[in-house]
Simulated assay, not measured.
Amino acid sequence: MAVLITGGLGHVGSWVATHLARAGRKVIICDMAAAHFDRMGLDYLEEVRDNIVLESVDVLDTHTLFETFLRYQDELEGVIHGVSVIAGPTFKTRPFRHLSINAMGTLNVYETCRLLGIKRIVNMSSGAVYGDASGQLHETTPYKATDLYGATKISGELYGDQYSETYDMDIRQARLFFVYGPGKKPSHMHAVYQAMFGPLEGLKGVHAANGRDQITDWTHVEDTAQGIVRLFDTPAVPHRHYNISCGVAVSHQRIVELVSEQLGYDSDMQLGPGPFVVRGAPLDIQRARDDLGFTPRYADIREGLEDYRRWLLGQS
C-alpha cells in the first residue's frame, strides 16, 4: 500500500514523506518542484529515495490531479494534503492566486478523492483558524479569521467536515503552527525567521521590522511530521480536528536570546516592535496526546535548536 502526499517536497511534507518511507512504505509525492528534487538539498529524503515516487502536479490543474490520483488509486491507503502558501505579510500581495491555491486546491483534492473512492485524507490546516483568540487554544475554540490565510484554512476545514458528512469520507484536520528545523535554511526564509534562527547558519546583522512582541508555539518540523503521521495512521479517531504543535509558547525575543546563548556570541539580530502575524497561543495538544499518542520530542526548544544547528552545520 502507498500514501500520496501533495506538497511532499515542502518543509513539513518532506518530513512526513521521510517518516513514512523510513517505515518501508511507498510514498507518492505530488509537488510542482518534483523536477528539481536533486537540487533541493533534502538529504534526509534522498536517503529513502527508493521508497519515493515523484510526480509534478499543480493542485489547481484538476485534470492532471485526477489523472495522477487515478494512476495510483488501487494502492492508496489515503492522501495527506500539504500544498499551501504559508502565512505572512506577503500573502496579501497576490490574494486571488494565494486564496485559490489554499482554498480551491484543497477542494480539488477532496473532490478528486471523492470521485475515486479514496476515503482517508489528512489536511494540513493551521492554528490560524483561531485568529487572535486569547488563552490556551483548544480544538473547541471558535473559528476566528484575522487574515486571509486564516480564512483559507477555515474554509478547508469546513469543506472537509461537509465532505465527510455528505459522502461518508474520513477527512481529518491537523492544525499546525509555526515550524522550524532541518529542511529549511534561515537564509531562504523571511527576515523575522532569519533574525531568530539565522545565527545557527552563520547569519549576522539581520534587523526585522517586527516580530519582537509575539509569543507563540514554535514546533520542530519532525514533531509536526510525526503528529501528522500519527493522525493518518490511527485507525479510528473520535474527532476530526487535532492541534499538532509543541504546545509550549515562547517569545520571539527569547528565541533570539537562546540562539545567542547556544552559540556563545551575539550576532546582532534585532526584531522590531509588534507581531509578525496576529495569532493567539499556545495550542492545547491534550487531545492529540490522548487520541493519537502524540508526544513532541522537542518540547524544550533549546533541544530543537541544537538539532537544527547540527543539520545546518552539515549543509555547509
Rank of each mutant, 00 (worst) to 15 (best):
N51Y: 10
V53I: 11
G117T: 07
G24R: 02
V109Y: 02
F96G: 00
Y44C: 05
H81D: 10
D43N: 13
Q73V: 13
V53N: 01
F66P: 04
N102E: 11
R49A: 15
E77N: 04
T68H: 05
S56V: 07
T93E: 15
T68D: 00
Q73P: 02
E47H: 10
E46M: 13
E55V: 05
I118Y: 03
Q73I: 08
M40C: 03
I28F: 07
F91D: 12
E55I: 01
V122C: 08
A23G: 13
P89F: 00
G105R: 02
L70F: 09
T64E: 08
T93Q: 12
M32E: 12
M40E: 06
H81F: 05
H63A: 15
T62G: 04
V83L: 05
G88N: 07
I118H: 04
I52D: 05
R49D: 13
L107H: 14
I52R: 04
I121N: 01
T106K: 05
P89G: 13
D50T: 13
F69L: 13
D38R: 09
I86T: 14
A23K: 15
Y44H: 14
A34R: 03
L115Q: 13
G24E: 06
A33T: 07
L70D: 15
L99P: 00
Y110D: 03
V83M: 02
R71M: 10
T62C: 03
D74K: 11
V85I: 15
L42S: 07
I28V: 13
D31Y: 01
I121T: 05
R39A: 14
E77Y: 00
G88V: 09
A34Q: 03
H63C: 10
G41T: 07
L99K: 00
V109C: 12
D58P: 06
L60N: 11
M104N: 09
N51H: 14
D50G: 11
D61V: 05
D43F: 01
L54N: 06
P95K: 03
H81K: 04
L99Q: 07
T106R: 03
I121F: 01
I52M: 03
C113Y: 02
R114H: 11
V53Y: 00
